[in-house]
Every structure is written in structure tokens, then in C-alpha cells.
Amino acid sequence: MEWVEIMETVGIWVAALLTLCIYSFLYRDNPFYRFAEHLFVGISVGYFTVLTIHQGLIPFAWDPLAAAFKEKEWVGLVRFIPIGIGLLFFARLAPTHAWLIRYPIAILIGVGSGLAIPNVMRADIFRQIHGTLTPFAELHASGWALGPFQIFGIILMLVGVISTLTYFFFSVEHRGVVGGVSKVGIVFLMIGFGSAFGNTVMGRVSLLIQRVDFLLADWLHLI
């Protein structure tokens, strides 16, 4: 047996036993579950730390600095500034200087907020409005030649978006027309939440089926 095949077989056994350890929680909290749970936390933290270092610090901090010294691309030395700012996070460990942590936090929040304004406008607001209104232009261009069911869908979409937004509009008291429209919004919201719930359940059930399939097919070779 090849070394790779042995490791693959061991891997399937490890994965199967850890899967059973986690499912044992369905009976009640027990040492097997706690074993898997704590191992999962440790492995996950280690994995994401490695990923952050290899995909964040090394390409954006280490490589430009290395290029600055090796290939004399001196502009890379600018990266000492964000490294210095990042190191201020360690001030959190010294209570008398803990306030210094506000500097990197303020910069990260400033960058995030500055990026959010144009990007959210472009990716969410304009695209959603575009998606809601474009069908009307298509309807007009086709000379109202679409089927009644499609026309109903286009109008329903606009009514749903406006009524949902009205429900979340708290600057006006929800009475009269506004109250009626917001009630229609609740209907759409409930259908939306129901669909989201149904999709979530089915997503989790798919994962369950996948794990059971792994146990029965890959591990026990029963199917």
C-alpha cells in the first residue's frame, strides 16, 4: 500500500470518528463531544491564523519590505508605517498604554467606512433598484407583449420592495395609508423569512445527508 493511500485511509477513519464524536451530542453533552469541540476550536484558530499570515502579512508586508532591501525598491519601505500602526494593537496588553489601540482601530474603521459608502451604493442600492425597475423598461420595450403572469410578477416585485421599505420607515407613524402599506410589507417579509427558514433547514439537511453518506459510503462501504 502506498504512503498516500495509507494516509487517505487514516484520514477517513479520523474524520468518521470525529463526526461520530460530534453527533454524540444529540444524546447529551459528553467527553467525546467535548474532545471534538475543543480540537475543532484549536485546529480552526491555527488554520485561520496560518491563512491570515500567508495571505495577509507575507504578501502585503513582508514581500514589499524584502523587495525594498533586495532589489532596492525603496518605496516598499512605506510598509513600515502600517506595520508600526499594527504593532500598536499590542498596547492592549499594557493597561497604562491600552489607549494606543484606538489608533489602528480608528484607521481600520475609517478605511472600512470610506470604502463602504461608494461600494454599498454601487453594489447594493443601485443594483437592487436597477433589478426592480429594469423589468418595467423591458415590458415597455416589448409593447406589453409579456404574459399576464410575468406582468403580475413585475408589479408584485415593485409592490413588495416599496411595502417592505415602508415597514422599516419609522419617521412616519404607521397609520392610514402608511399603516396599510406597511401591513402589506409584513406579508412579504413573512414569506421572505419563511423562505429563508426553509432554505436554511434544507441546507443543514443537505450537510447531514452528506455526512451520513460519508459514514456509510466512504467509511463503512455499505452503499
Binding site: 442600492i125 437592487q128 433589478g131 415593485l158 422599516f168 412579504f188 414569506i191
Partner: peptide
Amino acid sequence: PNLSARRGIILGIS
């Protein structure tokens, strides 16, 4: 109906 509710929520969040 689901998409229209989601669009309303996304617009509100945005």
C-alpha cells in the same frame, strides 16, 4: 415575494 422582501431589506440595510 421572497426576492422583493430581500430587496427591501438589502436597501434598508444599505
